[in-house]
Amino acid sequence: MGCVCVKPVKHTPGYEDPVILASETTFTVSEVEALYELFKKISHSIIKDGLIHKEEFQLALFRNSNKKNLFADRVFDLFDAKRNGVIDFGEFVRSLSIFHPDTEKTEKISFAFRLYDLRHTGFIEPDELKEMVLALLNESDLCLSDDVVQQIVDKTFAEADKKGDGKIDPDEWKEFVVQNPSLLKNMTLPYLKDITMAFPSFVMKSEVNDDEM
């Protein structure tokens, strides 16, 4: 009697079951599987170890692996939840889920706060805010004098720092975002609404029917 040898599917390090990831995120199982195709492409673009290194993240974002950008660094660091210098598949899916159009605003507000809390103090402070404005000016054609930048930072703090203690805490940030909803526009990626339709090349033969979930 013969036997059937089935070659096991080889997954990248940090691979997690799409069913579990879908249950923990806004994505369906099919969407998680589509994201795995995207993840494999990015994670094999330079160092072919199945993990996304910062250079690969920069290459995907900017078509340039050497382009330094403070904000891309911050996004990478937040995606890298285990803080081991790379993004694995589970981290990739869980982080991108925050950018899904259907994800709760509170999650987006919290993620944005952590992005801006450069020094991980639990607050956004004036020197951090000024550093970020200067970093943006440095990467753009906008040219503003130091006095003008300081005025913008002071005015922003006057509006956001309701308690007047010189720093923006998570509650003040939430209130400020409610008054200025445009601040969350970067926190939503329409592409994620239905990644399997937007990127048909990523559609795989799924073993799990989303309707059965």
Partner: peptide, 25 residues
Amino acid sequence: LNMNAFDIISLSAGFDLSGLFEGSE
């Protein structure tokens, strides 16, 4: 300039994650 500091920061290309998808199609 009638923008708050966060509006200015949000203009950074580093926040535009659509690049992750566009380059992989």
